[in-house]
Design a protein around this nucleic acid. Structure first.
Lengths: 197, 197, 197, 197
DNA sequence: CGATAAACGAGACGGTACGTCACGTCTTAGA
DNA sequence: TCTAAGACGTGACGTACCGTCTCGTTTATCG
């Protein structure tokens, strides 16, 4: 068997990668996305700046990696009925947004992404994508069970729930509560439930 | 003491104010919010940096002023029915977001505002506020005419329409189209229309 | 009388200029030309790097300014005879080269200047030039008094004295002594003295 | 212990040594001593940086090696008389200094050496030393033949010729010409020739 | 004829300094 | 008193090289 390719030697240092991501996470929590600097990350991680630029190239790229790595993709357990499941999901969403270091910076990051196509693509595909997928499959199952009208686009249902939540949080950071989430879920389900259910 | 009233010797220069806001608008269009600098605004406006700091104090404050000044608060004419009116409004919203210099930077600005309470307060109160108010009054009138169920919170209806639109635009900048807006409006109206109408 | 031109406001800060030149002088003494950095000068002088780059543009330019400012152009008093005068001058030259912070870095600076035409031009014109001129006038007077042969180029005489001194110092930094200087002066005078003197 | 001598398994690679010295020579010509970097040498020579550091340890050491290897120690043929011989030597010196890649960087290298004792020692001993020795023996022979005064230090004569040349070249890179060299040689010989010759 | 150990190319690494950019504050002369 | 101009101290940017290091991969004796 012949080895294909020249294969690089002295591969990327896992130690440095970890230190950088950890330092970024800490600083994100301490000072927030906007005040975060590559310089500070490098200093905290005891790493040369070049090492960061070698593998990421920008602040947003590092932060994105932290998001992808640290965000729990764990999902609250399904409830007895569809509405309970969806409410739990929505509650978790609000909770993460308000209480975790990453969540608190998610809005800023998405704002940044409005002017950076690459960033937005990754953020949407890798972060929001999988989370959305998980809810979609729940809804599709419900649809297949006949609980939801079969003529509706599942994606639209998701937007109908999370859109209002996100919108409110963006405008009134502190005030979005569980009650509103429940209200939204109920209203949406009201409209999409199959006739007989 | 003889002179009553203010004896300030030189008042704020209107010429400078205009030049600054105009330069900011142009640069916002040309380079976008993130790449915008006070330095560049001052240079373009042929104004001392101090003059900007004296009256505004930060990049976001100037930009906000431009938003408040330049954003047309004109509203599309009401249609024959409520759904047409709402659809026109939603279309206008999407149009502004995608096609105007200010709209294109609105997402970034709101992102910035996530970490700046003062900025968010002004943005929400002065910019989104009036626009929301206009829609609210339309809805309230409809409610009073008996077209909408009277037990519903009008604000929730607004969020139910604009939330999904905003959410989609944030994630898929280029793809949100008029059809989706119509779909959303229809779906929401479906759920909120009074029984007999 | 009308003022011509727009005349800059907020003129160059003398305080900063002084601090930079002083810091450079100290560091030149402490670490030498090669280890000197703009960063260190700025730090020592409590000055922004930009301020240095604004007015000088390179390490060598700052150092040159220090040379021009700090080098005493004082000349040892003339002796009773030409040879004593010239010997005193040569001794002073050696002394400066070996014992002063500037002198110790003069050789390196001239080396640097071999690859930088602008630097060499200034160094030669402003630093070596005046010193050479002073000796030249001494020699010209002697020539006019009939002490030196009138057919000789005075510049060549200067090179004949300082060339060997410099050459030796460049190669054997520590060993050039007063005796060698005397020897050189004597030998040169031997060859250039007018017949009858 | 049975094996006498070194049992190293792989000796220094001649291929690498050559590539490094050649690359250094080329770069010295192209960008000059100051802009030369180990990194660039390694890249041009297709060699690991470590290989350079293993055998030389610094930029100046490599360059020095190039000097020692590439500098022709060929000497112009002796002329019919001492003054012709010396003039030819001086001309060759000027020629090398102005026209060859190494010569053009010799001044900078000697400048560097003013602050680096080891470098200066090697440069003086290995490069200038042999060249000086060659001239010294010419002069000593002349002295033994009775052409030169026997009371003079031959080294001083050498300094008296090459000092002024070097001095002029350092200050006025482009202007030192053959005529000046002749003038200097003539003047020095004038003063050192034995009475009867 | 392997085995084996040093030298090798590649290039990642922690650093230092570079020269630039923009920040927000200041000083100055003129309107 | 406000303004245009722009110098100032500060701090982060992204890049270039430094000298050290860790990898497989030659390569050339020696057991």
């Amino acid at each position: 068997m012949t080895t294909t390719g020249a294969e690089r030697v002295q591969r990327r240092s896992e130690r440095s990668r970890r230190a950088i991501l950890d330092a970024t996470y800490e600083l994100l929590d301490e000072v927030g996305y906007q005040a975060l600097t590559i310089e500070a990350i490098a200093a905290r991680a005891k790493v040369g700046k070049q090492t960061i630029y070698r593998w990421w190239g920008s602040k947003s790229a590092v932060v994105l990696d932290v998001f992808l790595e640290r965000s729990s993709s764990a999902v609250p357990p399904d409830g007895p009925t569809l509405d309970v499941t969806l409410k739990r999901r929505a509650e978790r969403f609000i909770e993460v947004f308000h209480r975790t270091p990453l969540g608190r910076n998610l809005g800023v990051l998405l704002g940044e992404a409005q002017a950076d196509d690459e960033l937005r693509a990754i953020l949407v595909d890798q972060w929001f994508g999988p989370r959305r997928e998980s809810i979609r499959s729940t809804l599709v199952e419900a649809q297949e069970r006949g609980e939801l009208r079969s003529d509706l686009d599942v994606d639209t249902i998701i937007d109908a729930i999370y859109g209002p939540l996100w919108y409110r949080m963006a405008f009134a950071h502190a005030e979005v509560d569980v009650a509103f989430a429940h209200e939204v879920v109920d209203a949406v389900l009201q409209g999409v439930r199959a006739a007989g259910s």
